[in-house]
Design a protein around this nucleic acid. Sequence first.
DNA 1: GTCTATACGCCGATAGAC
DNA 2: GTCTATCGGCGTATAGAC
Lengths: 200, 200
Amino acid sequence: MSSDTSGTDTREQLMAATYRVLAERGFANLTTQRVADEADCSQSLVHYHYDTKDDLVVAFLEWVHEQETEWLETLGDGSAERRLRRFVDAQLSIPADDEHARFNVAFVELAAAAARNERYRAVLTAFSERLQATLAGIVRDGIEAGEFRQVSPEATARFLRYALQGAVQADLTLDEPEAKPQTEAAVDAYVEGMLLAERD
Amino acid sequence: MSSDTSGTDTREQLMAATYRVLAERGFANLTTQRVADEADCSQSLVHYHYDTKDDLVVAFLEWVHEQETEWLETLGDGSAERRLRRFVDAQLSIPADDEHARFNVAFVELAAAAARNERYRAVLTAFSERLQATLAGIVRDGIEAGEFRQVSPEATARFLRYALQGAVQADLTLDEPEAKPQTEAAVDAYVEGMLLAERD
DNA sequence: GTCTATACGCCGATAGAC
DNA sequence: GTCTATCGGCGTATAGAC
């Protein structure tokens, strides 16, 4: 594709290193030195590619955003109900102790930091809007296909997203073993009681 | 009541100072120096009363926990539906720009930090369990009174709590103006469609 | 592009006087 | 209990050689 300067490769390594540092140490302990160590280079090289630490983090968020976009398309097709259930499962069935789960903790930390950082917030808002559009689209498809009732796709998608996010966050940050199983049960009841069209 | 040493008053001032620093600067910028400035004392005095910064934060979380407990009893009585709606409103109708709202941002930051700090997590888990017990109790009362259907009080309370928390957090941390209004609409629909007993 | 070396500030924590 | 002074460490960012 793009025959860029060789820097592209280093930047990719720095993104991957940032991912690992965040997963292992958390956002509060993310330092340019640790990223450099993880990427096997000097700390000043990080600053050569990204003027400030904030620049590094913003670039990282955009990098994750792109990767997540690819993942969303994996949701694929099938009936609206099937796609919806796949979405719910994907959120609730992340294994508890692999690197991806540990990174999710860092993502919660970054989301919190977005409140006081405009640049983080811009990327994460775009992130959230894409998720919202995808899920609302699924609900809309379901309504058009006669699978779902005439609910508001936007409000329904939001409600589900927030409930799932709250469950995941509680699972990651508190000692609350019932967070995911009870939420899964409640979501199932919600889908059956509020969303699926009666068929009789 | 307790005729304590005069230190009690200073500690109270330090808690109040911590609250203001968190609201104005956020957890990431909470320093013992800033707390001291806000409380009009020297930084070393903070360390006299709380050996480490972590001790200060844990004491602060417990202090907030107590205050919140008092507030929860304010929910008072009335029908289960009335108490439930008061609970929902209380979460969704916090004014956007006063000190309390700004502190809520810090609370989101602290909740994220709990993932990697056992002591924070212990207090915040207790916090969450109290909320869960209160809301599940309201649902249980509603079922016993015949106001609500035979749902699972725990799963229902959890689902609502997480959805509300997700909405509040999105409102505080992202540029998402629809977070609270759309969630409110979805919660109303949920209460009417899933919770309230049919009467006809 | 990548390195070593370093400036500079801030923070948590302690020592010691009053 | 409260203060001033200070230590040691760490983090971001820059200077300058290769």
